[in-house]
């Protein structure tokens, strides 16, 4: 059996010629996925089950390397500069691939020119949540309330999907809100649940448990369609605010990575969605994306860069 397999590999390698050889025996050593944020965070949570599933289907260990810092830019830069052989990949986010470009004027990588997408792995709507004492249950009631008193919204920090969705929401709805940035999601939630601020925009998975426990109420979510986990909650669009955003996570490779390797990884990432560990992500509020053609991916990324770039410029957020 082993001999036949070996013969098959040699044969494929020969027929595919030189350029194909690297793909045919790919991977023959551990593959590294750089997660550009600390372990245990939302990006890490998406990465780990995928790494597990990919490791099984690639018959080689897939290792996660957490390389946090500067909104994911340090890890992304490292991958952009690494050898394009399919052994170093990036768990890119809406931040590293769409927001940072506009946020950091001196970014050391170009999200469009230095990377090629392998697969978009998961997405999460941004939820607008309120302290239960806030006398508004809909966007319309919120608009009326905002005319009477100052409303403050917390976010996980300047330039995060939550903050920028809040800014897009403000300009599209004309509702006046004051932004209060925090260092990460947890301290902002702490102040929101304690009633020190009234509102917060944050990806669904970090607020879902508090909504279910009645510690927070959800007013609307930012995705195009309602979340299956909160079927009663309207989208921003259905509430009359023309804003549609998601926080998302995808697998990216350095731009020069051979087509065959990217195709192989895309195929395995597709089947990884069916693994039990990856399916678990749906329970915590994430949406697993369907298969996209490379063209669809390119279009998606272009649109995202345009949308978030505008949000960053409009909000005046900047890091340098």
């Amino acid at each position: 059996m082993k001999k036949i397999l070996f013969a098959a590999i040699v044969l494929t390698a020969l027929t595919c010629g030189f350029s194909g050889a690297s793909a045919a025996d790919y991977p023959n050593r551990p593959v590294k996925i750089v997660v550009p944020f600390p372990a245990g965070g939302p990006t890490d949570i998406v990465a780990r089950p995928y790494a597990e599933a990919l490791g099984e289907s690639l018959h080689n260990p897939v290792i996660i390397e957490n390389r946090g810092g500067a909104g994911g830019s340090i890890g992304a830069t490292e991958v952009a500069k690494s050898t394009a052989d399919g052994y170093t990949l990036l768990l890119g986010t809406v931040g590293t691939q769409a927001i940072n470009e506009a946020l950091y004027p001196k970014l050391a990588y170009d999200p469009a020119k230095d990377f090629r997408p392998v697969a978009i792995l998961a997405a999460a709507p941004v939820a607008l949540v309120a302290h239960p004492s806030v006398p508004a249950n809909t966007v319309a009631e919120l608009a009326t309330l905002a005319k009477k008193r100052e409303l403050r919204f917390g976010s996980a920090g300047n330039g995060t999907p939550g903050h920028l969705t809040g800014e897009l929401f403000k300009s599209a709805s004309g509702i006046a809100l004051t932004h209060v940035p925090y260092k990460g999601s947890a301290p902002a939630l702490q102040d929101l649940i304690g009633g020190h601020i009234e509102l917060m925009f944050d990806p669904l998975q970090s607020v879902l448990a508090h909504i279910r426990a009645g510690k927070l109420k959800v007013i609307a979510i930012s995705s195009a369609i309602p979340s299956p986990l909160l079927p009663q909650t309207p989208t921003f669009g259905a509430s009359g605010v023309n804003v549609e955003t998601t926080a998302w996570w995808g697998l990216f490779a350095p731009v020069a990575t051979p087509d065959s390797i990217v195709a192989r990884l895309a195929k395995e990432a597709d089947s990884a969605r069916k693994s039990a560990a990856v399916k678990q992500l749906e329970n915590i509020g994430l949406v697993l994306q369907g298969t996209q053609t490379p063209e669809q991916q390119t279009k998606f990324l272009q649109d995202e860069r345009a949308k978030w770039g505008k949000a960053v410029r409009d909000s005046g957020a900047r890091v340098d």
């Binding site: 949570i45 780990r48 089950p49 998975q205 879902l208 448990a209 508090h210 279910r212 426990a213 510690k215 560990a277 678990q280 329970n283 915590i284 509020g285």
Partner: peptide, 11 residues
Amino acid sequence: MMIHGIVPGPQ
């Protein structure tokens, strides 16, 4: 906890 599909929270 999240890896095991448990969302930590008051519940």
